[in-house]
């Protein structure tokens, strides 16, 4: 079954969720739905992006996201080049723009960028004349993750409108939390953030979310429980006293989950720290956990994003017509 193509959103770049319209997001969801069927069939490959070049430029290690983007681009027929740039081995800053301009001169159609500094992908996008997709920048945004989370929920619940969503754990260091706060609110859901005060960003309530410091009130009657990874690598100084104390009060187990709605979905962007922020029994609960579905949606969403950015006819400068 093919759905109509008239509503394909056209974007120059995908740098973040903040500022996107509900129509654009719905359009990307609709587009993704097409690819779910394709990905489940034996013949997974289309030639929509045949002849196009996609560069995955990762300044921060990531197996999951990079693989997902690679699979997505290849299934649309694009040529994919992976560049893993270890930040430790290059001089920062200058190299970012130098690398960007060097790659730009090779005339790629899209660059997928992950960087450990907030705003680095925005900066890079100003220096190239191809499409740029943010695959995660520092603690700022990770838009394709939010899109795949939204799509997962929409398929399970029909819509995001009116849902109560709890995003739990290390909000401060999480780009996933920021992108999801924006996306859920744009799509009409209400968002709570739950975690210890030391892991809450300053004035996070100004983003329109409800703030909870304990799981009991935070998870009460929610439709969606989204756990975040405790980002120990981003933590300088002491944010929480110990892993065991963190798990005791903020880790998700069946006991804490009791106050949520009985059919509440459990989500996690991965990779999970089992026994730190989520109990294995909950993570592997086939009735409630949609963690593997999220990964599947990830490929479809990234295919949709590539189509929206570089699937159209292109003029010589590189802007999508």
């Amino acid at each position: 079954m093919t759905k109509k193509r008239a509503g394909v959103p056209r974007l120059p770049h995908l740098l973040g969720i903040e500022g996107l319209s509900p129509e654009t997001i719905s359009g990307l969801f609709d587009l993704s739905e097409n690819y779910i069927d394709q990905n489940r069939s034996i013949d997974k490959r289309r030639d929509m992006l045949a002849g196009r070049t996609v560069i995955n430029l990762f300044f921060e290690n990531s197996t999951r996201t990079r693989t997902s983007f690679e699979v997505a681009a290849k299934r649309l027929g694009a040529d994919v080049i992976n560049m893993d740039v270890a930040t430790s081995s290059v001089r920062k800053g200058e190299t970012l723009l130098d690398t960007a301009m060097t790659l730009n001169a090779m005339r790629p159609d899209a660059i997928v960028v992950r960087h450990n500094e907030s705003g680095a992908v925005n900066l890079l996008s100003q220096k190239v004349n191809c499409a740029v997709i943010n695959a995660g920048d520092g603690q700022h945004e990770h838009p394709t993750q939010a899109l795949l989370d939204g799509l997962t929920i929409r398929r399970r619940r029909g819509s995001l409108q009116g849902l109560e969503v709890a995003i739990c754990g290390d909000i401060m260091h999480s780009r996933v939390a920021r992108s999801n706060i924006h996306l859920f609110q744009i799509m009409g859901a209400r968002v709570r953030v739950v975690g210890p005060p030391t892991l809450m960003p300053t004035d996070v309530d100004r983003l329109g979310v409800e703030v909870h410091y304990n799981m009991k009130t935070g998870l009460k009657d929610v439709d969606i429980v989204m756990m975040l990874r405790l980002q120990t690598e981003r933590m300088q100084g002491s944010f929480v006293p110990s892993i065991s104390e963190y798990f005791r009060f903020f880790g998700l187990d069946h006991e804490k989950l009791k106050v949520a709605k009985p059919d509440a979905l459990i989500m996690h962007p991965g990779p999970m720290n089992r026994g730190v922020e989520i109990d294995s029994e909950v993570a592997d609960d086939l009735d409630r956990s949609v963690i593997h579905e999220q990964v599947e949606m990830g490929v479809a969403v990234r295919m949709a994003c590539l189509e929206a950015l570089i699937g159209g006819h292109r003029n010589q400068i590189g802007a999508v017509a």
Partner: peptide, 15 residues
């Protein structure tokens, strides 16, 4: 400076 803007941009703030 710490606050809403720093939170949106994902930048570490100084209070």
């Amino acid at each position: 400076t710490s606050g809403e803007m720093a939170t949106r941009l994902g930048l570490a703030g100084s209070p």
